[in-house]
């Protein structure tokens, strides 16, 4: 069983009467790339703020590395990026060296390694002249400084161009594969998180509504073949006769999650078997559709 590296129990944060977080109990296991998914204002950043000690919790507990009482010490072993911010007059090298010094470890090539990793090694301009994408990259380098065991990234791909998004995904994947670093990453773009995350937590209006593994998520979103027929039992019998057993029924609709490329043979068999076939189409529940269904509609995720 995977070791738990971070856990929250009933984490609640109220601003006046507004629940920014409402009894969030989340578990982060060693080696997870945990994708925290939610719309803007769902509570993702507030959750991170509470975890990093930047906002006081109203109720609930946080446990990091088995530590509940002295969270400051535990946080020193973590890396985080929430709204990347550095001094405007420092260049990326100086910014990371500054972080090295306040974290108290010697550079030993770490700064150069990280600058190369986020492709800022040749950049000498100061932070104030950075594009949003460059700021994000430096923020991620800052979070990875000192090879922390847990890395918290809040919307890391915000402002990155398509190539930057791919690069960032590769960086996270590589670090995760090479060092087993545990990541918790928030985003409102589920399809992007889907490419890196091993587990997901869906948050809406401060409530963690579902936790799901990558495999389970794809179980819920895979393609299906839908058929609308006049006689369900007869249609099932016809399908069974041609070797298709895994048929699910929903009203007068049949759904198949296999044999997706045999729609031609299936249609012919049903018609030849005397079944009236009103509709047959292939459909995939996208990650976004799944997410929207989960949170009960509304705006696009």
């Amino acid at each position: 069983m995977a070791q738990t590296v971070m856990q929250t129990h009933g984490l609640t944060k109220k601003y006046g009467e507004f629940h920014a977080l409402n009894a969030v109990s989340l578990t982060l296991n060693q080696g997870d790339v945990y994708g925290l998914v939610g719309r803007n204002g769902a509570g993702k950043t507030t959750f991170f703020k509470c975890v990093m000690g930047l906002a006081r919790t109203t109720a609930g507990t946080i446990e990091i590395g088995g530590e509940k009482a002295n969270l400051s010490a535990a946080r020193r072993k973590m890396g985080f990026m929430i709204n990347p911010s550095f001094f405007p007059y420092l260049n990326p090298r100086e910014s990371l060296k500054y972080l090295c010094q306040i974290k108290g470890f010697r550079d030993k090539g770490e700064v150069e390694r990280l600058l190369k990793l986020v492709e800022l090694d040749g950049v000498s301009k100061t932070f104030k002249a950075f594009s949003l994408g460059m700021k994000q990259r430096l923020g991620i380098a800052g979070a990875l400084l000192g090879s922390p065991s847990i890395v918290v990234l809040d919307e890391p791909i915000n402002g990155l161009d398509p190539q930057g998004i791919i690069d960032m995904r590769e960086v996270i994947k590589n670090i995760h594969t090479q060092s087993g670093t545990t990541f918790i990453i928030s985003s409102h773009i589920l399809s992007e998180l889907d490419l890196v995350a091993t587990r997901f937590g869906f948050i809406e209006q401060g409530v963690l509504i579902k936790e799901i593994t990558h495999e389970d998520l794809h179980e819920h979103t895979k393609k299906s073949l839908f058929m609308e027929v006049d006689d369900i039992p007869k249609a099932i019998a016809v399908l069974n006769a041609i070797g298709i057993k895994d048929v699910s029924v929903n009203g007068n609709r049949l759904a198949l999650e296999s044999h997706l490329n045999q729609s031609n043979q299936i249609a012919r068999a049903l018609i030849n078997g005397g079944v009236e076939l009103y509709d047959l189409h292939r459909q995939e529940t996208t990650l976004e559709e799944y997410f929207m269904r989960l949170i009960g509609g509304g705006q696009n995720a």
Binding site: M52, G53, L54, L71, S72, A73, A74, R75, R76, M78, F80, I82, N83, S85, F86, F87, P88, L99, I102, K103, F127, G142
Partner: peptide
């Protein structure tokens, strides 16, 4: 005040510095 303008206090507190 540079700490405030560049939100460095957030970095310091987030890194577990008391």
């Amino acid at each position: 005040t540079d700490d405030l303008n560049s939100k460095n206090l957030i970095t310091l507190v987030g890194f577990g510095i008391s």
